[in-house]
């Protein structure tokens, strides 16, 4: 089965350039504003969109995304509302791949089968669920693959060659290489180390390799783009949302443009 993600990477290959993957938290700082940002992302150069599903206990995320989740939760965001957001987005965009990223519990509580059906119907193409390693593939990964949804796995600097085949086994769409041992939005990834790691992964898989965690500046986007199939930026974009809130946490006028302009400065480095 060919998904929007497969199609996109094939197109990027044909264009001869790396892809730009942008992350925002669904419902941050509120439902309407995040829908507006989401709708603007493809034009701002996002080849693929990762949409965060908020969770009270994001144990793999740094401060920027933790705060984004808290803003979303305070605004009443839930998993059903996130699916609604995707549905709204799909009314205007039927091409840009969209991946939901988050933690397992809200999905588990929604019910795996019901969630997969609803996500598919809303137009979700793939899932990244941080706290589901290959050891727990029966939970969601295998059902997702059966439902025709890509399950994108994280590979990390601690994933050794003995372990890689297990990590790659049920992965589809692309492989997300976590460039640092750490949480999102903290240390900077070193280009040499990333290049070596991407090379190592390529020996084991034909899937495209996207690299994320710790990419924050336009220069880093360009550096990572030169050694991987795509670069992922999350925290740096989310911080633009934070920077455009007033003292009550409400969106200042111009927030959406500020976020999209910033995204454009990043994505342009790959074009």
């Amino acid at each position: 089965m060919t998904t929007r993600i497969d199609t996109k990477f094939a197109a990027l290959k044909a264009e001869g350039r790396p892809g730009f993957v942008s992350y925002i938290m669904s419902g941050d700082p509120n439902y309407d504003t995040s829908l507006e940002i989401l709708r603007g992302l493809p034009d701002a150069g996002a080849d693929i969109i990762e949409l965060g599903m908020c969770f009270t206990d994001p144990m793999a995320d740094g401060v920027a995304i933790q705060l984004a989740a808290q803003r979303a939760l305070a605004g009443g965001q839930t998993l059903p509302k996130t699916l609604e957001l995707v549905q709204e987005f799909r009314k205007q965009d039927s091409e840009t791949p969209l991946i939901l990223m988050g933690y397992y519990n809200p999905i588990y509580i929604y019910g795996v089968d019901a969630f997969l059906a609803a996500a598919k119907a809303a137009g979700v193409d793939g899932l990244i669920v941080v706290d589901l390693p290959p050891e727990e593939d029966d939970e969601l990964c295998i059902p997702a693959n059966k439902a025709g949804m890509n399950f994108i796995r994280l590979a990390t600097p601690t994933t050794d060659e003995v372990r890689l085949p297990a990590v790659l086994q049920n992965t589809s769409g692309f492989v997300y290489y976590v460039s640092i041992t750490g949480i999102t939005g903290t240390a900077a990834a070193q280009q040499d180390a990333v290049a070596a790691a991407v090379g190592r992964l390529k020996a084991f898989t034909d899937l495209p390799i996207a690299v994320g965690f710790g990419i924050t500046t336009p220069d880093q986007v360009a550096e990572i783009g030169s050694v991987a199939d795509a670069a992922v930026v999350g925290s740096a974009i989310v911080r633009q949302i934070e920077a455009n809130l007033d003292e009550h946490g409400k969106a200042k006028p111009g927030l959406v443009d500020a976020v999209l302009d910033y995204t454009r400065t990043l994505s342009q480095r790959l074009r």
Binding site: D131, A155, T156, T158, D160, V167, V178, G182
Partner: peptide
């Protein structure tokens, strides 16, 4: 061997921690 007591327990951690 998967760390389960019935359906409870398991290893729901990020990949970075899994090898550890």
């Amino acid at each position: 061997e998967r760390g389960l007591f019935g359906i409870f327990g398991g290893r729901f951690v990020a990949e970075t921690l899994m090898p550890l």
